[in-house]
């Protein structure tokens, strides 16, 4: 394959990876930014979304209908679970950072076991809502992957709109800046936190429903998205949506290019170290405000 087509494929793949990263990370960015808590169970919420998408598809006859049903049902179910988690657990811990980490580690064990017990250990394939294979002269490409890029942009735009243009977003931002002052102004901080946590988890589930047709639902799948989301969120800067998007692009594209220059495993090692060093030398992230 010539250099041109190779570059085309690499950039397509890089963009898809960036979309996947951005989708997985946006929910975490939100909870992290507003609540300042590390939700270790974020990856498991994502996994739950994927597994539910598979489960829903079993009850719905056609692939497009199953996809739409999952798109509605999975985020709502996961969001409700997260709301419950927040009120029954995190609130009682007073969002203490260390306690929250332990509690969400415990929660992720529970969710993994739940998925294993109810859905089994197999990797489950979910059909894409439409089958479209783009045939370039040199290689074929999945049309659905391009759709994922578009969907990621749409989701990010929607979250941006909620945060910056809606009343809910205003309340969330106010709570983020100073929760005591927010409370003094009559904002129900408890509800904001529960809502933010539910929204973050729902976004993780939404991301999973979108992504699962190009990967699979599996009860151990939550680990990688968790890690990648943290990286994207921190490199992008806490709570910065623009940062999240740009960090996802940088990581997605550079991962693709590195893996062509070096043996793939070595490329992974290098990419991991590069991310670590970015954090070391710019701990506030690329777009976060200086502390």
């Amino acid at each position: 394959m010539g250099t041109g087509p190779l570059l085309l494929l690499a950039s397509l793949e890089g963009l898809v990876m960036a979309a996947v990263l951005a989708l997985a990370a946006v929910g975490l960015s939100l909870t992290f930014g507003v609540m300042r808590v590390v939700n270790v169970a974020h990856g498991e919420f994502y996994m739950l979304g994927a597994v539910l998408a598979w489960a829903v598809a079993q009850f719905v006859p056609s692939a497009p209908m199953g996809f739409v049903a999952a798109l509605i049902f999975a985020p709502l179910a996961v969001g409700a679970l997260a709301w419950l988690t927040d009120t029954a657990l995190l609130k009682r811990l007073n969002y203490n950072p260390e306690s929250t980490i332990v509690a969400t580690i415990g929660l992720s064990y529970l969710l993994q076991q739940g998925a294993l017990s109810f859905f089994g250990p197999d990797a489950r394939a979910v059909q894409a809502p439409f089958e479209l294979r783009l045939q370039f002269p040199w290689f074929g490409y999945s049309g659905y992957k391009l759709f994922v890029i578009a969907a990621a942009l749409a989701v990010l735009a929607a979250v941006w709109w909620i945060l910056s243009r809606s009343r809910a977003g205003l309340v969330m931002r106010a709570t983020q800046v100073d929760r005591n002052t927010a409370r003094a102004f009559g904002i129900n901080v408890d509800r904001v936190y529960a809502g933010t946590f539910a929204l973050g988890a729902g976004l993780a589930a939404l991301a999973a429903v979108l992504i699962v047709p190009i990967s699979q639902a599996h009860y151990l799948m939550g680990h990688d998205p968790l890690l990648l989301s943290f990286i994207v969120v921190i490199i992008g800067g806490l709570g910065s949506l623009r940062g999240t998007l740009i960090a996802a692009l940088i990581i997605g594209l550079s991962d693709g290019i590195l893996s062509m220059l070096y043996p793939p495993t070595l490329a992974k090692i290098l990419a991991t170290l590069v991310v670590a060093l970015v954090l070391v030398f710019r701990p506030q992230g690329l777009f976060g405000a200086k502390a």
Binding site: L89, R92, L93, N96, S99, V102, A103, I105, G106, L107, S108, Y109, L110, L111, Q112, Q113, G114, L116, S117
Partner: peptide, 20 residues
């Protein structure tokens, strides 16, 4: 049990709630 992960998960949560 058949659910070792759940036991660990529940223990952690109970612990953090009642003996943080």
């Amino acid at each position: 049990t058949d659910s070792p992960l759940a036991v660990i998960g529940i223990t952690l949560i109970v612990l953090v709630l009642f003996a943080p």
